[in-house]
Design a protein around this nucleic acid. Structure first.
Lengths: 132, 132
DNA sequence: CGGTATCCAGGAAGATACTG
DNA sequence: CAGTATCTTCCTGGATACCG
């Protein structure tokens, strides 16, 4: 921990005009339904489309395509086509995608560690709502 | 790489049956449009509804209410009513909310540091799409 | 196999108006 | 001031069917 970036707090809270939107656009990509799952799946190496689809489970072809396109557009994932028959397409994390794994991994771990408390809080909140 | 994976990677990637959904629900809360902004705003201490609304800017009354309700439900934010006239309501981060600031701060910083590369990647991707 | 195209349902989100 | 209620629009995401 360098004293370089003082605290987590203020670095982002500062209202830079345009940057805020860009940061927000990255955040909402992470928050979407399948992105994190896909990134985690690709952590161990390249994977083919249907392989990815099977491993994730519950994702539609359309959504997986859209998710991968989004990740590719942002430079997190690279797409390699092999013009064989049948065709084969590999998806792989770029170095940028790899580096993204760190913060979302931390967030994932935080979520995992605090699920219990959150679920309890939700139940308590909902219970309060009923008897009023 | 130890065989003992203390690494960020696999901890979450493991498919625990129910936990995955709960983690995902937390992730999508973080990814929504206003949550992170609100949490960052409340970092420095309690704030009133309209104060929050002004500082954020561009958020509708309705969306701010919904966001705060969501955060309150999950136990990230506490809501304190003062039955004065005019009424006054303070929102404040709970200890749980405070602890959430760490991982989302890291994610925010990551995003902030990599905006440039991502924006470039998007432009390159979009440019590729035009001339084909 | 690895997509794209199309259609449709449901939720997210903004604008506006009203209330304690 | 701090909301709720309502209406409308937009976007997300699933199902299905078809193409190279």
């Amino acid at each position: 921990m360098e004293p370089e970036h003082s605290d987590v707090t203020t670095d982002v809270a500062e209202h830079m005009p345009g940057a805020c939107q860009a940061v927000s656009s990255i955040l909402s990509r992470v928050g979407d339904k399948w992105t994190v799952l896909v990134v985690m799946m690709l952590a161990d190496g390249p994977m083919r489309f249907n392989e990815l689809k099977r491993k994730i489970g519950g994702v539609s072809q359309r959504m997986l395509t859209l998710t991968l396109r989004g990740l590719e557009r942002d430079g997190f994932v690279s797409r390699t086509m092999f013009p064989t028959i049948p065709p084969r397409v590999d998806y792989e994390l770029t170095p940028l995608g790899q580096s993204l794994r760190v913060p979302i991994g931390e967030l994932g771990n935080w979520a995992f560690e605090h699920i219990g408390v959150v679920v309890e809080a939700r139940a308590a909140f909902d219970a309060r709502g009923i008897e009023e």
